[in-house]
C-alpha cells in the first residue's frame, strides 16, 4: 500500500465513522403526557438536547385513521385535545426516524 492509497483508506474510514456518528446523533426522543384537563402534550428533541421544532405529529385512532395533525412549536412541544377512544401519537422524524406512543402509555 503506497502513501496515497493509505491516505484514501484513512479518509474512507473517517468518513464511515463520521456518518455513523451522525446517524446516532439523529435519534429522536419523543414523550407525551396527560395534562389532566382533557388535553395531551407531546414533546420531541434530539440526543444533544436540542428541540425537534417543526416536526410533524400525527394522532390516529385504533383503525389508523388520522384524527389530528400538527407541528411541534419552537420549544418542541404540541398540545391537543385528548381523543375519546384508543389512539396513538406519531412523531414523523423523517428517514425512518418515526416514533409512536400509544395513548394508553400516556400518563
Amino acid at each position: 500500500m503506497n502513501k496515497r492509497s493509505a491516505f484514501t483508506a484513512l479518509v474512507a474510514v473517517l468518513t464511515v465513522l463520521l456518518l455513523t456518528a451522525t446517524a446516532f446523533a439523529h435519534i429522536v426522543f419523543f414523550a407525551c403526557w396527560d395534562n389532566g384537563d382533557g388535553t395531551i402534550s407531546c414533546e420531541g428533541g434530539y440526543t444533544d438536547g436540542s428541540s425537534a421544532a417543526g416536526a410533524t405529529i400525527n394522532v390516529t385512532d385504533a383503525d389508523g385513521s388520522l384524527l389530528f395533525s400538527g407541528k411541534l412549536d419552537k420549544s418542541g412541544e404540541l398540545k391537543f385535545n385528548k381523543p375519546a377512544g384508543d389512539f396513538a401519537v406519531t412523531l414523523d422524524g423523517g428517514s425512518g426516524h418515526s416514533v409512536t406512543i400509544k395513548g394508553k402509555d400516556i400518563k
Binding site: 426522543f29 419523543f30 414523550a31 403526557w33 414533546e43 428533541g45 434530539y46 440526543t47 444533544d48 438536547g49
Partner: peptide, 12 residues
C-alpha cells in the same frame, strides 16, 4: 443532596 430523573431521554 440531589438526584436526577429524566423524562423521555432528552438531556437538558
Amino acid at each position: 443532596t440531589k438526584i436526577i430523573v429524566n423524562n423521555g431521554g432528552l438531556p437538558t
